[in-house]
Each structure stands twice: as structure tokens, then as C-alpha cells.
């Protein structure tokens, strides 16, 4: 454990909780892509199946359980409890265009050709692109609530901090996982445009709105 990994995990946790609280307090999931949230629930489920097979630490297990629990709670709030507020018309990204290629890639490029390992790889690849329906929705409506941008910032920072963690681990532990690193780079790059808007607009007190 190093500072980048810990702050990355906490940033990820903050993102998940910000989103849950936003929906819960406003009693609305307007502006939130249910599809991205389903993808994240799939990501956590596929990756954390190792909860059943290996124990790493109390921290590791607790965080996994919290992430999975929050992911399903978010999906429940969007598709059941506050379904009436879900903006399905604007959430029109075709997720099969992500899931199918990513599934194929996980079968082709993995560390070990075994079911659990392929699911882990699938989750790493899928996570890197799972935010696309959300970013697509914002580009379609041309705006995002400020709280939604805080959510996206924390979520983007999480993988960015992990990149520093991987540099750290390579130098100090000689550890690197090429699959995670390449996917993490892709994931971070996808947020760059958003990071720019967040810094130039939201942090200056303006609402995130895109030119028509």
C-alpha cells in the first residue's frame, strides 16, 4: 500500500458516495447514465469474485464489499426507486458496442486462460470504457449538474492516482501488471477532456455546459 493507491481508493469511494447521496438527497437521477452504472456493477461483480477464493486483507475485503454494495444500490435507485426521474431518452449509448469487443479482447489478451482470470481481465477492460455512456449523455444534453461533475472528477482521479501507484510499485517492488496499466492509461485519457472543463469551468464557479 502506498499513498497513491490509498488516495486513489478513497477518491473512488468518494465518487461512489457522492453519486449515491446526490440521487438520494435530490430524490432524482436526472443527468445520470443508468447504463454506465450497470456497467460499473458488472465491473465490480466480475472483478471481485475473488472474494470467494482469496483473502488479501481486511481493508481489501471491506472495500470490495462496499464498492459492490454501493454499485447495486445505485442501480436500484436509478432503475427502481427513482425510475420516474431517469432520463432514458438521453441515455442512448449502445453498450453492446463496448461489452462485446471488450469481452472478446479479454478472451484473447489475458494473463492466464482461466474463467476467473478472464473475468478479472474483462472487468479491467470494461472499467476503462464504462464511463462512456455518461460522457455521451453529457455531450448530448450539453450540460451537467455541478455535483455530477464532482462525481466524475473523483472517479477520473481514482485511476489517475493508480497510474502513479503503478510507477511507485514498479520502482519499489518491481511489480507491474501490463493489462491494468494499459487499461488504466486508456481510462485516464478518456477523462482528459472532462478534467479540462472541470478545471476551467466548475472550479471557477461556473456550471459545466457545452457550446451548442
Amino acid at each position: 500500500m502506498n499513498i497513491f493507491r490509498l488516495t486513489g481508493d478513497l477518491s473512488h469511494l468518494a465518487a461512489i458516495i457522492i453519486l449515491l447521496l446526490k440521487i438520494w438527497k435530490s430524490r432524482s437521477c436526472a443527468g445520470i447514465s443508468g447504463k454506465s452504472q450497470i456497467l460499473f456493477a458488472i465491473v465490480f461483480t466480475a472483478r471481485y469474485l475473488d472474494l470467494l477464493t482469496s483473502f488479501i486483507s481486511v481493508y481489501n475485503t471491506s472495500m470490495k464489499v462496499i464498492y459492490i454494495g454501493c454499485a447495486y444500490a445505485t442501480v436500484y435507485l436509478i432503475y427502481a426507486k427513482f425510475r420516474a426521474t431517469y432520463d432514458g431518452n438521453h441515455d442512448s449509448f449502445r453498450v453492446e458496442f463496448l461489452v462485446v469487443p471488450v469481452g472478446g479482447l479479454a478472451v484473447l489478451i489475458n494473463h492466464t486462460f482461466s474463467p476467473l482470470e478472464i473475468l478479472w481481465t474483462f472487468s479491467i477492460y470494461l472499467e476503462s470504457v464504462a464511463i462512456l455512456p455518461q460522457l455521451f449523455m453529457i455531450s448530448k444534453t450539453g450540460e451537467a449538474e455541478t455535483i455530477t461533475t464532482h462525481y466524475l472528477f473523483c472517479l477520473g482521479m481514482y485511476r489517475t492516482l493508480y497510474l502513479f501507484n503503478w510507477v511507485w510499485r514498479f520502482y519499489f517492488e518491481g511489480f507491474f501488471d501490463m493489462i491494468a496499466i494499459v487499461a488504466g492509461l486508456v481510462q485516464t485519457v478518456l477523462y482528459c477532456d472532462f478534467f479540462y472543463l472541470y478545471v476551467t469551468k466548475v472550479l471557477k464557479g461556473k456550471k459545466l455546459s457545452l457550446p451548442a
Binding site: H12, N60, F176, D177
Partner: peptide, 10 residues
């Protein structure tokens, strides 16, 4: 590539 037997990251 050096990697641990189990995935220890989240």
C-alpha cells in the same frame, strides 16, 4: 511480466 499470484489491488 512480474505479477503476484493474486490481484491485490481494487
Amino acid at each position: 511480466a512480474a505479477r503476484t499470484q493474486q490481484h491485490d489491488e481494487l
